[in-house]
């Protein structure tokens, strides 16, 4: 018997999706491949409108792709829709719980829908409320919850059926920093139990904090993929912030930069951080040695990766000369 390789939790090949037809057709995904091993956290990173939500909707069988194939938890998203749905949970950008039911009622309802008997649903709901620190709030209507509590009860609702793969579509968008930290902790706990997590985010820090692998999605194409460390290395690993003497010089070099601070006439450029590399970059930026007044070297953040890969490198509202 040939050795059977454990299939990945998510495997997608050449997924495409276009909304609208004819002149108004908007390609949202233009052939993306994904490979997420079991028990890992995968982050799909991209700005608004990059196609992140569409990718999630396709993988969770809510939207059909125009072309391409995908398997989630070992089942084909087209032919094994039912099996895929049983194996996953989805927590979207909008809280998918009823505002006019209590937290406990929402969880009990979801548990019943997931197939648990009445008593089992009650126990499961109590467990989840305790786990997400919502026991006291459990008997209050969800509409009285704070944003962070709402997101937690929403995530809890997704976990009633012990899913193998959890999809989190922008789990912390709109949350205050404290709730965001709490949410991150919840995701870390999930992965400690061996659950596979697929999350989308526009926050680079979030991907950096949580994900084993990151893919950068831009205009429907994956423009980079790897660990957060690899991606940072890909753009040189460092950033040189150069402050210019005149606005003209600033505007002239603005298109090449990944960071812009017009107030201080400072631009950031990717570099490998070596003496030779920095010298070369400075020469390229300021061949006559008149434009630059100061510079500083920083370690690249995922933000730099992101901006280098996705552009546009000019900030909005700035016309360049």
């Amino acid at each position: 018997m040939p050795p059977t390789r454990a299939p990945a939790a998510i495997e997608a090949t050449a997924l495409t999706k276009t909304y609208g037809t004819g002149d108004r057709a908007v390609p949202v995904l233009r052939g993306i491949d994904l490979h997420v091993p079991h028990g890992t956290v995968f982050a799909l990173l991209g700005p608004n409108g990059a196609g992140k939500t569409t990718a999630v909707r396709i993988l969770t069988t809510l939207t059909e792709p125009d072309a391409g194939t995908a398997r989630v938890a070992g089942h084909d998203i087209r032919t094994g829709q039912r099996e895929v749905r049983r194996a996953i949970s989805l927590t979207g950008q909008f809280a998918a719980v009823d505002e006019t039911q209590t937290g406990a009622e929402n969880l009990r309802m979801m548990a019943r829908l997931a197939g648990l008997p009445r008593a089992g649903a009650r126990t499961r709901a109590a467990e989840l409320l305790a786990r997400f620190g919502l026991t006291e709030a459990g008997d209050r209507l969800v509409r009285t919850y704070s944003g962070g509590m709402r997101r937690r009860v929403d995530l809890a609702a997704g976990l009633v059926g012990d899913p193998e793969v959890i999809f989190l579509d922008e789990p912390t968008t709109g949350l205050d920093p404290r709730s965001r930290q709490e949410m991150w902790q919840v995701v870390r706990d999930l992965t400690a139990e061996g659950t596979t997590v697929f999350l989308t985010t526009q926050y680079l820090e979030e991907a950096d904090q949580l994900a084993d692998r990151v893919a950068v999605l831009h205009e429907g194409v994956i423009v980079a993929e790897g660990s957060a460390a690899t991606l940072k290395a890909q753009v040189g690993g460092h950033r040189l912030d150069a402050t210019f003497t005149t606005r003209e010089a600033y505007l002239h070099l603005s298109p090449r930069a990944t960071h812009h601070s017009p107030e201080t006439l400072t631009l950031g450029f990717p570099t490998d951080g070596t003496a030779g590399g920095v010298r070369e970059l400075l020469d390229a930026l300021d061949p006559d040695r008149t434009r630059l007044s100061a510079f500083a070297l920083r370690t690249a953040t995922l933000d730099d990766v992101f901006l280098t890969l996705t552009g546009p490198s000019r900030p909005k509202g700035l016309t360049h000369v």
Binding site: R82, L90, Q93, A96, L113, A157
Partner: peptide, 13 residues
């Protein structure tokens, strides 16, 4: 308006 329909559908309702 909310996301609950998607959740129901993902539970095969």
């Amino acid at each position: 308006k909310g996301g609950i329909i998607d959740r129901f559908r993902s539970l095969d309702i």
